[in-house]
Design a binder for these strands. Structure first.
Lengths: 335, 335
DNA sequence: AACGTTGCTTACAACGTTGTAGAAACCAGG
DNA sequence: CCTGGTTTCTACAACGTTGTAAGCAACGTT
C-alpha cells in the first residue's frame, strides 16, 4: 500500500538515487527523466518516509513547544504564533503540555529531546537553572522569565518596566489604594516577583506607601484564582480603588468578583491585567492590559533556534527582548 | 556528544543487541549483565534515537491532533484532554493548526501522514468526504461533524438534539422571539446546519413561527463575529428576547454587543451558547451553554485510534457518540 | 585522436535500531 | 560424562533514505 523510493524507481526505470534526486530537487536530472519519475511518483502517490530521512540526515524538521497549559489563552495564542513562524521555515511544531510542575518540566527538558525534535521552545514556570545544566544536544530557547543565567537562549519582555508602567497608569487616574493580585512566594513565581517589583517601584515613584494588605497571592493564575483573591481582598475590609492583576485571566476573575460584590468597574475600582488575551477585548468592561508582542516573541524564538541549528551551536546564549505596550480600555477609563 | 547503542555496548563489554534487549526490557538477561549495561547507559546518558527505532518498527509513538485554531478556547481545551488521554498510552501528541480552510485541511489529511505519525485525530471544519477518499495508511479519527459516511472513525455529539434542547430551554423561560447567531451557508458549516436544524425543530415543537430575520449568519465563530451579528440584529429593528448562539465565543461577543446597546441580560434578552468554555463561567453574566463532555470525546478518540492501530485496521468505521448536558447559568436565569 | 569538461546517472555504504536465527553457556537427569 | 532443554548472548540483515564517489555519455578543445 505504501510505496518506497524503490517502487518508484522500478516503475520509472531509473535508480533509487535518481528518484531521490528528483524528490530533493537536485538540478542535474534530464527533463524527460524527471518527468518520468514525477509521473511514477504521482501514480504511486509516493511520500517519503520521514523517519528514514531523519535517520539519514540527523534532522527531523520538528521542533517542540512546551507550555504549562494550552487552555490558558495566553499560551494558546502564543502557540498559534509559534506554529505560524515555524511553518515559514518548513518546520512542524510538536506541542507539549507540561502542567507547570517542576518535575514534569524537567522531564520535558531532558526527555523529549530524544532525537525526535531538532529544538525546543520552552515556556517554563517552575524550572530552575540547575535543571537545565548538563542537557546535552538539543538546542533550547526559553520564553518568559529568565532562568537565571541558564545555559540557553531566551526571549523575555521587561516585566518590571511593564508592571511599573501599568501601575503608574492607575496612579495617573487618581487612584491611591491600588491592590495587586497574583503574588507568589514559591520559586516558580519568577514572573510574579518581577511584576510585583514593578508595582512597588511605581508606588515608590509616586510616594505612595506600600501596604502589604493590598497584595493578594494567587496559587495559579486562572480566572478562579483571580476571583477568589478579589473576594478575599474585599472580605478583609481593605477598600482598593484599583487592582493590578498580574495576568488577564486573574483580572477577568477579579472583574467577576467585583461584579458579584456590586462594585462598578472602573467607577469604584479600576482593573488592569497583563497579556492582552482575546477575552479582554470583549469582556464587560473591556480590560486594560499590557500587550506583549506575541508574534514577535514567537518569531524571535524560532529565529534563535534556527540560528543555533544552522550557525554556531556553541555560541554563547543570547537574551532578546520583545516589545510590549500598555493598552488602556474601559476597565481603567476615567469615570 | 550523543551516544548510540554501540557506545554503550563497548563500555559494558556486551553486544549491541544485548543493550537493545536491556533497553526494551527483554527478560532473558542475566542480572549482572543487566546491571553493567544499565550502569553504562547511565554513565553515557544514553537515549535511544527515535528516528531509527521508528524506521525499524514502523511505529513512531506520535499521533497528531489537527484543529482549526488553537486560540479558540474550545479547541485548546479539547487539545488538553487529548494530550492527557494520549499520554496514558505512552503517546506524544503533535498538534497541528489547519486554519480551517478546505485546502489546508486537505493538506493535513493527506500530507502529514508521512510516516511521522501513527494516527491522526482530526477536527475538520471544511473538509468534505471526497477529500478523504483514497487516503492510504494512517488511521484517522474525526471529531465533531460527520463527514458524511466518510471512510474514517468518528466521535460526535448529537448537535441537533443539543441545539433543540437549548432552544426549548429558552422557550421555557417564556421567550418567544428567539434569535440564532452563527448560521453558515457554506459547505464548511456542517455544525452550523445541524444546530440550526435543532433550533428550528424546537420552534416547531412549541408552535412558534420560524422568522428568517432572527437568524444571523457569522462567517467565523469568534467573539468579533458574535458581536457584529448581534449589532446587526439590533440595528435591523428585530427585537429578540433571547439569542441562541451556536458557540460560546459568539455568545460572549453577543453579550458585549448587548451591553453596548444598553440591554440587560437576561432581563431584556436571554443569551445561550454552546461548548462550555472556561470564559463562560466567569463572564458577566455567566453564560448558559451546552457542555459537551470534552474529556470523554478525547478519550473515545484516542481509544478508537488505539483500536485501529492494535486490532483490526480494516474494520468498518465506527461512529461513537459523546454525552453533553445543558448547563443553565445567569444569562438565561428567570428575571 | 586524445583529452578534459560537463551533465547525468548509478552502486554502495551508512544513519541507529530491532527481529531472526542461531551459537554458546548452563542446567538437570540419566 | 552425555543428552536434551533452557537461558543468555550475539552476528547479521533489514527498515528507507541520502552522501560519496565513481561511471558513462556527449560534448568541445587541443
Amino acid at each position: 500500500m505504501r510505496h518506497r523510493l524503490k517502487d518508484v524507481a522500478e516503475r520509472a526505470g531509473v535508480s533509487v538515487k535518481t528518484v531521490s534526486n528528483v524528490v530533493n530537487g537536485y538540478v542535474h536530472v534530464r527533463p524527460d527523466t524527471r518527468a518520468r519519475v514525477e509521473e511514477a511518483i504521482a501514480e504511486l502517490n509516493y511520500r517519503p518516509n520521514l523517519s528514514a530521512r531523519n535517520l539519514r540526515k540527523g534532522r527531523t524538521g520538528v521542533i517542540a513547544l512546551a507550555v504549562p497549559e494550552l487552555d490558558i489563552p495566553y499560551f494558546a495564542e502564543l502557540a498559534r504564533h509559534v506554529v505560524t513562524a515555524a511553518a515559514e521555515l518548513g518546520w512542524t511544531v510538536l506541542i507539549d503540555q507540561t502542567g507547570g510542575g517542576r518535575e514534569q518540566e524537567r522531564v520535558v527538558a531532558s526527555g523529549i529531546t530524544d532525537h525526535l525534535i531538532d529544538g525546543l521552545i520552552f515556556s517554563p514556570l517552575a524550572l530552575a537553572a540547575e535543571d537545565l545544566a548538563g542537557l546535552d544536544g538539543t538546542p533550547m530557547v526559553l520564553l518568559g522569565e529568565r532562568v537565571d543565567h541558564g545555559p540557553a537562549d531566551h526571549v523575555v519582555i521587561d516585566n518590571v518596566a511593564a508592571a511599573r508602567e501599568m501601575t503608574a497608569h492607575l496612579i495617573g487616574l487618581g487612584r491611591r489604594r491600588i491592590a495587586a493580585i497574583g503574588s507568589q512566594r514559591t520559586p516558580e513565581g519568577a514572573s510574579a516577583r518581577l511584576r510585583l517589583a514593578g508595582y512597588t517601584a511605581a508606588l515608590a515613584d509616586a510616594g505612595i506607601d506600600y501596604d502589604e494588605r493590598l497584595v493578594a497571592p494567587a496559587p495559579a493564575w486562572h480566572r478562579a484564582d483571580g476571583a477568589a483573591a478579589m473576594r478575599g481582598l474585599l472580605a478583609s475590609g481593605v477598600r482598593p480603588d484599583a487592582v493590578f492583576c498580574f495576568n488577564d485571566t486573574l483580572a477577568l476573575g477579579a472583574l467577576r468578583a467585583l461584579h458579584e460584590a456590586g462594585l462598578r468597574v472602573p467607577e469604584d475600582v479600576a482593573v488592569a491585567g497583563f497579556d492582552d488575551i482575546e477575552d479582554g477585548r470583549f469582556s464587560i468592561p473591556t480590560l486594560s492590559t499590557i500587550a506583549p508582542d506575541k508574534e514577535r516573541i514567537a518569531r524571535l524564538a524560532v529565529e534563535l533556534l534556527a540560528n543555533r541549528l544552522d550557525a554556531d551551536p556553541t555560541a554563547p546564549p543570547q537574551e532578546l527582548s520583545a516589545p510590549y505596550h500598555l493598552t488602556p480600555r474601559e476597565s481603567t477609563s476615567a469615570p
